[in-house]
Design a protein around this nucleic acid. Structure first.
Length: 582
RNA sequence: GCCGAUAUAGUUCAGUGGUAGAACACUACUUUCGUAAAGUAGGAACGUGGGUCCGAUUCCCACUUUCGGCUCCA
């Protein structure tokens, strides 16, 4: 539905209608661009000194509805550059666009409908008043957006509208958004007691509670197991490093503004909290002479990293100042690159199968028009990008190419996950780097006795365990599978006289390393059961007279269904689920 | 960082130019109940700092937080 051309035309037409309404209320506003987007449309406008806020959307919206009835048919005409500039006299934004269109030698067209004319290349519904239902769209919110997406330009006011073919579709979308908000990890994180933030600790620095830390540790444990199967050796490295390290790696020049500096009282060295692990791993590699026979050498690391993200960019667990990665670096010979990347891809696929996350693959390439953003020469980039491309082709892996998304030292294969509100986040990544090994002068002795430079592969299986916890919370809507659940079993004695028996079952489960809690106290049975359910505990054992007599446990699952099993069978079942990660 | 909004118990909300109320949650007691929200009592909040005012949680300013975007993301 989102891709239908007709709907895109409706949305773009509404952007025109919005522009006209805005000018009626703010005659001095300068129009810029107004495209159709997923779910609706927007128009970027320079309001000059006028203030516009959410309250003003109502009146603008009313004017749109009023005007729509007069929007019977679009007409358009081709005009010369001079004519176009004249009709938008005083509007520097339109002038910029007109000049660019003329430079490219394209036709300049003006579209008119309902007495309103805008610079446009077309793409409208033919008869807006017939094609668009006045209750199928709504002005949604005000946002800021830089002119042409560049931070160096003026910030304009963007008005977003939601638009669908029918009112029903619009409502369905609103309901879907509401549902998504219910599984927002920031809300569930508080309700399920997984993590918190403190003004005193600081923005973007999450505090994981015991419950949250269990989930986080399970995520790390799984990555650790996968690392082990790939032949990685886990290392442990410090959080503070001398600036010199980052100068050589290239991070200093590229990201100095985004690193947090640390001062010693005794020495004058410039130091930073580390924003990544790769330069440190090069130093472990460099600590001994390496033979071609030693390669590949693989290091993994779960250290906490620190980046000085700008305040407005932080959000929940998805963007943090302090976070860890399930990081790893492979130092190998050129002839080993393909196999190494292949086996890492295999491990990533295994992880994605277990978590059942919606994702897609992106091949992130260098932007050839912005070469100064990257390290290394053209030849190296051509080579590394060609390796990545042929690898994906050979393995027949579906992916999208993204120009300009490469790391500054090399191309990447990224796995992108989608969160509850439809935003995309990078999780897994595999990066091919010919630059850093050379800059750190890493070598190995090859079979011909010559010193050669190894290739470095950076990789993360699920990215950041912290961020991934947020993504998983939304993915499972807080109902983690048994292996991830902070509490796997709650045991609830019906009355006080069942306490002792319940305690025995509790102790038995505990001794089997099952995460179990007992909910006693003077609250009603039903209330205690709901308490467990509020926390999405997968299994609730209710222990009363019936169970005492029969010796069979009554176990209620999250979905409300009940099973009756012996304690031994139940233990075996949970262990099986934990082992299989289900 | 930029644009717009936001801020009252743990949570969700109410309210006022004379320093605040509810529900759920919490604590104690009562109830021992086979699928929650029964009784009694209690503790608990106006983000921070300025300003206006006799007096500010309420009005103004700044900062901070959070939210929606933009930009950035090794």
């Amino acid at each position: 539905m989102e891709n239908s051309e007709h709907l895109a035309h409706i949305r773009h037409t509404l952007a025109h209608l919005l522009a006209q309404a805005v000018l009626e209320h703010y005659p001095s506003a300068l129009l810029t661009l107004g495209p159709a987007v997923d779910n609706g449309f927007y128009y970027d406008i320079d309001f000059g000194t006028d203030k516009v806020s959410d309250e003003d959307l109502g009146k603008i919206s009313k004017t749109m509805v009023k005007n729509l009835s007069k929007w019977t048919e679009f007409t358009h005409k081709e005009v010369s550059k001079g004519e176009a500039l004249k009709s938008f006299a005083g509007n520097i934004y339109k002038a910029e666009l007109i000049n660019e269109i003329a430079e490219r030698g394209e036709k300049i067209t003006l579209y008119t409908c309902g007495g309103f004319t805008d610079l446009c290349r077309g793409g409208h519904t033919e008869h807006p008043n017939k094609d668009i239902s006045p209750d199928s769209f709504v002005l949604d919110r005000i946002a800021g957006a830089y002119w042409r997406g560049s931070e160096d330009n003026k910030m304009l006011t963007r008005i977003y509208g939601l638009a669908f073919e029918t009112k029903k579709d619009l409502n369905a979308y609103k309901i879907q958004q509401e549902e998504a908000r219910k599984r927002d990890h920031r809300k569930l994180g508080r309700e399920l007691d997984l993590f918190t933030f403190s003004d005193l600790v600081g923005v973007g620095m999450p505090l994981f509670t015991p419950r949250g830390n269990i989930v986080r540790e399970q995520i790390i444990g799984f990555s650790r197991e996968l690392n082990d199967s790939l032949g990685f050796g886990e290392v442990h490295t410090p959080n503070i490093n001398k600036a010199e390290l980052f100068k050589i790696s290239g991070h200093y020049d590229k990201y100095k503004e985004d690193m947090l500096s640390v001062r010693s009282q005794y020495v004058s060295d410039e130091m930073f909290l580390k924003p990544m692990n790769c330069p440190q791993h090069t130093q472990i590699y460099a600590s001994a002479p390496r033979s071609y026979r030693d390669l590949p050498i693989r290091y993994s690391d779960f250290a906490v990293l620190y980046r000085d993200e700008r305040p407005g960019e932080m959000s929940g667990l998805t963007r943090l100042r302090s976070f860890s990665q399930d990081d790893g670096h492979i130092f190998c010979r050129p002839d080993q690159v393909e196999e190494e990347i292949g086996s890492v891809l295999g491990a990533i696929q295994k992880a994605l199968e277990v978590y059942k996350i919606d994702s897609w693959m992106r091949l992130s390439l260098r932007d050839p028009n912005n070469k100064e953003k990257y390290l290394g020469d053209d030849e190296t980039w051509e080579k590394s990008q060609a390796i990545m491309k042929s690898l994906l082709k050979e393995k027949n892996i579906a992916h999208k190419e993204a120009i300009g998304e490469a790391a500054f030292y090399g191309p990447k294969i990224d796995i992108m996950a989608v969160d509850a509100i439809g935003r995309e986040w990078q999780i897994s990544t595999i990066q091919l780097d010919f630059n850093q090994p050379a800059r750190f002068e890493l070598v190995y002795t090859d079979s011909d006795g010559k010193q050669k430079t190894p290739v470095m592969i950076h990789r993360a299986l699920i990215g950041s365990p912290d961020r991934f916890l947020g993504i998983l919370t939304e993915h499972y809507a807080g109902a983690f599978p048994t292996w991830l659940s902070p509490v796997q079993v709650s045991i609830i004695p019906v009355r006080e006289e069942h306490e002792d028996e319940a305690e025995k079952i509790y102790a038995k489960l505990k001794s089997e390393s099952i995460r179990v809690e007992k909910i006693s106290g003077n609250e009603s049975l039903g209330k205690r059961i709901h308490k467990a359910k509020d926390f999405n505990v997968p299994y609730v054992i209710i222990f009363g007279d019936k169970e005492k007599e029969s010796g069979v446990l009554t176990i209620e699952k999250r979905d409300g269904s009940k099973i009756e099993v012996s304690l031994d069978d139940f233990i075996a079942h949970i262990k099986e689920e934990t082992k299989n990660r289900s």
